[in-house]
Design a protein around this nucleic acid. Structure first.
Lengths: 249, 249
DNA sequence: CGTTTGGTTGAAATGTGTCAAACTTTGTGG
DNA sequence: CCACAAAGTTTGACACATTTCAACCAAACG
């Protein structure tokens, strides 16, 4: 039995936070999905929308964001393959963020009715999805802390630790390297800084021999150093295997 | 049939975000609860705990927060009567925040086993609770935006709008006034600013004739003005009756 | 009535943003 | 495969928002 890529990604993501039974996996894999391609910088869902389906990121990277009246953008979450950026719309009809690709993306749409029926008939799956949305909330809390109370370069370091930890858990990191997929401008919008200051903070991390950042490829040179510099404690990610983050250095 | 205060508060809160059937209300009211009093500035639950019960705020106010290694505190959420600050621990065993009272609090503990059984047997209630945790996430996103991208006095204004809107929805605001229960130091920790700067920002809001803040009692003099100054759009609260926020001015 | 807690003020230090220009890399079409 | 354009990065100078420190004041409290 072959399983499509969208299902593989979704199942792999969920496996990082919960143990799925084979039955659950099959149910998720069998959901009807509609695959659509998006280019870089395209919007997939808009603040204020009332979607009737949610989507899985199959390939590529996306972010959710809000824009203030003065036109400043704040990135609120970072999505990688297997993520479902608008899962909350299952129980919150009106979307409160805009989701945009930061890389070309292949996404798979699933009707809310399908998800809802699965949740009703299979409470175990509902529980995992609920847990997933709670982890998204936990990550939000860590971001508030970062943006509110950490120095600029620690914010950057923390975000890098988060991304590489999540990528590792998915098996999408190569050793100490991963495709971060964010320009410095996007890094700025995610950390509440200006692009110029991000640049200077990144240089500080480089000078401290903590990282290498070429284009959008991040390499961690000193995992323990970066962790302590960014005050990163992976507990908030609530991953099943904390070992995933200890493989570094 | 008399219903205890803890249940009343809980049901009133949930009624602001969902329509509960009488059966659901009865089930919630019938949960065994253990009422405990806490003084001001006490901690109810600790970061890293693995609680076996969650608690409803019956009276008083509380916040959840994280503290950085440098000792800076970031407040992440603000809880009022009827709120369940650690509801997420139902599916995230390890708590990732500390919950402390900012006023003397009466709280009612409910065993997780009880909540879990209700959720299993009554999917309608599970759905409401899930929705509730999703709204908490939505509020977190708004806070990230505020802390990351809004000017200092707009942050304060935004937080004031949020608190008074939620208090109004609960019927806990008197006209344009409400008990905000936060000192300027707590306001600082919630908005990622220093206490001194909060003081200056509050004064700016006063000078603009938007608010009055005596002690911890907030009075809104110009609701529309405060809303636009703080870029406040209540959509992210996902309240059932948006009218609650339109009653002002 | 003194003590504590929270609020207010001023001055100086500093982190971060803004602006503008130059540079580098990446991608694309000829 | 080169040349060019576009996108992203880096740099410097300067402005300014915010923090820090320290002192003082006001209100609440036992």
């Amino acid at each position: 039995m072959t399983v499509d890529k969208a299902s593989q990604r979704l199942i792999r993501q969920l496996s990082t936070i919960a143990n799925l039974t084979d039955e659950s996996k099959k149910l998720l894999a069998d959901m009807p999905k509609q695959v659509v391609d998006f280019g870089q910088g395209e919007k997939i869902a808009w603040d204020g929308d009332r979607p009737t389906k949610s989507f899985i990121i199959v390939d590529g990277f996306a972010v959710s964001s809000k824009t203030t009246t003065e036109g400043n953008r704040q990135i609120l979450a970072y999505f990688m393959p297997g993520d479902v950026p608008d899962l909350q719309s299952l129980h919150l009809p009106a979307l409160d963020v805009t989701v945009s690709t930061i890389r070309p993306c292949k996404v798979a749409f699933v009707q809310h009715t399908v998800l809802q029926e699965i949740c009703e008939r299979h409470p175990a799956i509902a529980k995992v999805l609920w847990r997933w949305t709670l982890i998204a909330g936990s990550i939000h809390r860590e971001w508030v802390t970062s943006v509110g109370r950490r120095r600029s370069s620690a914010r950057i370091a923390h975000l890098m630790c988060e991304v590489i930890s999540r990528m590792r858990a998915l098996g999408l990191a190569q050793g100490n390297s991963c495709e971060m997929a964010m320009t410095q401008l996007e890094l700025a919008d995610a950390t509440g800084m200006s692009a110029v200051h991000v640049n200077r903070s990144v240089q500080a991390l480089r000078r401290a021999n903590l990282i290498t950042l070429r284009g959008t490829t991040l390499t961690v040179l000193d995992w323990e150093g970066l962790k302590s510099f960014g005050e990163f404690d992976p507990a908030y990610l609530h991953l099943l295997a904390p070992s995933a983050e200890a493989q570094g250095s």
